[in-house]
Simulated assay, not measured.
Amino acid sequence: MWDDDRDGRREHEGLARALDESGTPDGRVWNGHAWQEWDSWGETGLVTFDLHPGEPTALRAECQCVWHGEARAVDGDPASTAAAVKADWEQHIATVTAAMYPVDVADEMADLMSRLYALTQEQPLAALTALRELEQKIEPLRVATVAHSRHLSLSWQKVADALGVTRQSAWEKYQFAGTGADVDAAYAKAAPPAS
């Protein structure tokens, strides 16, 4: 199995799954040296297959996140085919982790949400004020970040994927990003607080 452990996360594990002549996963994986029976993802329990007799005819990369790559024919040496499907998985990892933020940021966001929830219970009006101010800071920062992403020549599709919206929606809302006074104003509003 292949692991991706960026920033302390273990969200993606991959393997080279054996396929039979019909393209059906047959319950074996190539472990780098030999075929090994592996009928399910042990940690998720999401995928189980019946074991099939005979030699696998193809391999594909699979990830614990349920992504899988294209089938690649086994040409005598499963190790060379496994190297190709591992490259498919590594491309998948590069794509999905491009927008992954560091664990310390996730921890700080979780801490902020916990504090805001507690404030909601104790002082609801103060919590509403804090949420309003947070919203006023987020959108300008988002505009500045889209502008910077476009300045780095990232596609509208990649920006949209990171925002969790369609490409068209991202373009319609942020097409001005990267030009003129609107971005300058967004940077000014999004500036970090003085220490």
Rank of each mutant, 00 (worst) to 15 (best):
S195Y: 09
A99E: 05
M113T: 13
C65Y: 00
V103F: 02
A177N: 04
R72P: 04
E11L: 15
A106G: 11
A61R: 06
T97F: 01
W30H: 06
S40A: 08
W35S: 03
W35F: 11
G32Y: 09
S149L: 15
L131P: 00
D104A: 13
L15D: 13
T44D: 01
T97Q: 11
A58G: 08
W30N: 03
A110H: 09
P53K: 05
V74Q: 02
A177D: 03
S195P: 14
D111Y: 15
L46M: 09
T48R: 14
G32M: 08
A73V: 12
A126T: 08
A16T: 07
R72Q: 13
A110K: 11
K173Y: 06
W67T: 09
T120K: 10
G45D: 07
E13G: 08
E13N: 07
D5V: 00
A83N: 11
L128A: 13
L15W: 15
V146Q: 00
A98C: 02
A191K: 15
D7A: 06
G164D: 03
A147V: 01
V66H: 08
A162K: 00
A126W: 05
V29F: 02
H92S: 00
P25I: 03
Q36S: 12
A170G: 06
A194V: 11
Y101F: 13
V74F: 01
S80L: 10
K158N: 09
A160T: 03
P25S: 12
V183I: 11
L125W: 14
Q175I: 04
A61L: 02
E90I: 07
L152S: 08
G8I: 00
W2T: 06
S195E: 08
P102V: 07
Q157W: 10
T44L: 11
E55P: 03
A170C: 05
C65H: 07
V165C: 14
R9M: 01
L128R: 13
A71H: 05
W171P: 01
A160W: 07
E70G: 12
V165Y: 02
D4L: 00
W89G: 10
D111N: 11
F176Q: 10
E172A: 15
E13M: 12
P192T: 04
L116I: 14
T95P: 01
T24Q: 08
A73D: 13
A61Q: 08
G178R: 05
E172N: 15
R9K: 13
Q36R: 15
G180F: 04
D161S: 13
D20H: 08
V85L: 06
D20N: 13
L152G: 07
A177K: 06
E37N: 08
Q157Y: 09
P56T: 06
D3S: 09
H151D: 14
G180Y: 07
E108K: 14
R9P: 00
H151Y: 10
G180L: 01
A34W: 03
S114V: 03
S114N: 10
E133D: 14
Q168T: 08
